[in-house]
Structures are given as structure tokens and as C-alpha cells.
Amino acid sequence: MPSKAKPPESRPVTITAVIDPVAALASGALEGNLFLYDTNKAEGSAGFGGTDLRTRVRSGDRIIWNVVVLECETYAALDEIVIDEKVCTPERKVYPNTDIAYWTATVKRHVTEPVPYRLKFRLGTVTEPYAVSSPALVGQAGAGKEQR
């Protein structure tokens, strides 16, 4: 009988910021022009398509943040992620042999209360970053009940 045991799921949780940089620059705000998604919908992530994404994570999960622009002629990049260092320490990396950056972090501990974080973007040639503080990492529903 074939074994049901699957190799450990190593797929990282990717959080993608879809951004309309032209509209954000024109209106001076990210609200309405930033759409956050992640790849963990099956685990119960919520708030897709807005700025208050709730990404469901477990201790040990690897998270990747990247950016997709709706208008490829305008520069947009994730400049900084500010989050409680006890939960994770995001690090800027580049895809090998490119200067295209992504941010990555490993969830250090079991998350009970939602952990909000701040995403800072650089748009166009504007020196001041555009930021949102509404997304958060959230833990498993029914805290304490470990699903194994």
C-alpha cells in the first residue's frame, strides 16, 4: 500500500503587492491603488485585494514578499517591512543574477494575536516612501489547538 506520508510542504507563503503606481502617484495615496494577495488562501488567509490582508502563518513558515506592477513603465519597489522582530526579521534579497528584489523571512514563533506590519514602497522618482500599516500576519483559528 502506498504511503500517505507526503514530503514536508516546502512551498513558501508568497505575499504579493499588486500596485498601480501611476494612480498612487497621481492621488498621493496607496489606498485604492494597492491590492494585497497571498498564496495561503487554503489555510485561511483573508482580506484579499485590499490593504488589510490577513495572512495565516505557522511557526517555521517561510514568507516571501514581492511586487507586481500594473504599469510596468513606472518604478515601484518594496523598500522596507517593519514588523515585530520577535515574530520575524524580513530580509531583502534579489532573484539570482538580477537587481529585482524580494523580501523574505521565517516565522519564528507561534502567532496568536494578529501581528500588524508596515509596508513601505518607493514609487517613481519620489524620495518619500508610500506606506500602509494595515496588513497583518495571523495565527491558526482556535489558538492553542495545534493542527498536526
Binding site: T14, T16, Y37, D38, T39, I64, N66, V67, V68, V69, C72, Y95, T98, I100, Y102
Partner: peptide, 8 residues
């Protein structure tokens, strides 16, 4: 979604 972005 979740792949290497189209900007590479």
C-alpha cells in the same frame, strides 16, 4: 501569483 514576478 506567487511566482517569480514579471519584472525579471
Amino acid at each position: 501569483l506567487g511566482s517569480i514576478p514579471p519584472t525579471v
